[in-house]
Write a protein that binds this DNA or RNA. Structure first.
Lengths: 114, 114
DNA sequence: GAACTATTTAAGTTAGTGCTTAAATACGCT
DNA sequence: AGCGTATTTAAGCACTAACTTAAATAGTTC
């Protein structure tokens, strides 16, 4: 998961991911859309591949890349679990506060009319 | 958004975020849970604060931190829009493929029984 | 096999980051 | 004011990461 988060923290890699989200593109086609060298893009593609965010397929000379739904799904699932766990705790906390508030009110009422 | 993604890409910052998810903690209390110096944690807290992921409140001597729902919401929204846009494109692509397949079948049928 | 194309890998440079130690700031207490 | 506590800021160091250039690999074509 570490690798995934690091991978998408880099803006250029997010752009690349977008480019290959719904279609295959050769490394060179991807590189031609950026103003850095092919080598630089190749290195980004490696990071994305090792994070399991893109898949690579060889076609003759070329290497075609495309977003990998599995890796993206893992990321989404991780983030959702992160949130759910947090929201769950918030909920529990809110209920506890609610109980305290009611207890305070009951005590106040007893003082007013015992 | 850049700042948010960079902030959560760091494992220690994710741990800190978890700690203050549902309660306020003083900087020192947070730092005492890690085996790095207070200064290091203070720097992490700054990163989180500048990414709007935590809120800081001063209480006398101490500074209390707590997760900021707004920043977290922004992150969730960003990721969801990232996905939705992607899924939307996937859907459009799938429908286009479906139309092509039907067109192929119609053509084949005409050839079989014109 | 030599030449050409597409891509990656290696090596080096530069900028950024996480950490430490030491000094600065901010607040409360007497 | 002076002292103690909580925390941040500054400076410096080690390590990582994004990039470049140059060389290596892999596949196609003649």
């Amino acid at each position: 998961m570490e690798a995934v988060l690091k991978a998408i923290a880099e803006p250029r890699r997010r752009e690349i991911l977008r480019l290959v989200w719904d279609r295959e593109l050769a490394a060179g086609e991807i590189a031609s859309r950026f103003d850095v060298t092919h080598a630089a893009i190749s290195q980004h593609l490696r990071v994305l591949r090792e994070a399991n965010l893109v898949r690579e397929r060889r076609d003759g000379n070329r290497r075609l890349y495309r977003a990998a739904p599995e890796g993206l799904g893992d990321l989404k699932a991780f983030l959702e679990s992160y949130w759910d766990a947090g929201l769950q705790r918030l909920k529990v906390e809110a209920e506890r506060d609610e109980r305290r508030k009611r207890a305070r009110n009951r005590a106040a009422n007893r003082r007013r009319r015992p």
